[in-house]
Design a protein around this nucleic acid. Structure first.
Lengths: 115, 115
DNA sequence: ATCGTACTACGACGAATGTCAAATTACGAT
DNA sequence: ATCGTAATTTGACATTCGTCGTAGTACGAT
């Protein structure tokens, strides 16, 4: 092949991110768990898909990561054989100030309350 | 019939409200429009279903109101022949501080941006 | 008792969703 | 070239979702 550009991954541009899609992406427990994990990693840090243990099959995990990416919640990039994931925190905060933070706080509150 | 108690309407109690359900309820454009409308009404104020013009049929409208109620986002009560709706703002703020506010702000921001 | 308004209930239907298993691709290391 | 690890793709499946129209119930007013 030509110059080894890693396989392309479609991401919505900043202006293309829709609130409804973000909320929908965050409304699934598995995906919320992924977002929580990435948030706890700290600003700008990334993790491989395999670093996050979800109680579903590999293909389902792949599916959830794609939903998050296509909604604009995470950024995915191939790094060797792994696929690294990071929250698009800055983009989301630009578009919807405070939203991600309050959702994460809400998730934490709920976890505290109901185990 | 006996003492005229208006038909009962099932609402989740405070502790039963789930973040995922709330986010899912808010992730639909029609329902977001309803929430926006109720929020603009002002603290504690209520509106009949018919006061909110949605670009869908009556039965679909009923459906969306039910989703919002069952998620714990709105409170519904029969008043005569009308069914009045109000945001459960206080309950939601107790459970998930700031969430409803940031979602509404996000919705406003998006509307400003994309018409 | 009748009428009109407001909302519901009951299917129905196609589209989307969450899930899985099996086969496949991409890449680094040997 | 071969192997192992990481992740994808495809196709299947049951479920849920958003939508509609039609028929029905509840209630206030006449």
């Amino acid at each position: 092949m030509s110059t080894a550009t890693a396989r392309a991954l479609e991401h919505p541009r900043l202006e293309e991110i829709r609130l409804e899609a973000v909320l929908h992406a965050l409304s699934d427990p598995m995906r919320l768990q992924v977002v929580r994990f990435l948030a706890d990693l700290g600003e700008g840090r990334e993790a491989a898909c395999s670093a996050i243990e979800l109680a579903v099959s590999k293909s389902t995990t792949t599916h959830h990561f794609r939903v998050l990416r296509e909604a604009g919640v995470i950024n995915q990039v191939y790094r060797g054989t792994a696929k690294m994931n990071a929250l698009r925190r800055h983009d989301l905060d630009t578009l919807f100030p405070g939203l991600l933070g309050t959702v994460l706080d809400a998730e934490a509150a709920q976890r505290r309350r109901t185990g």
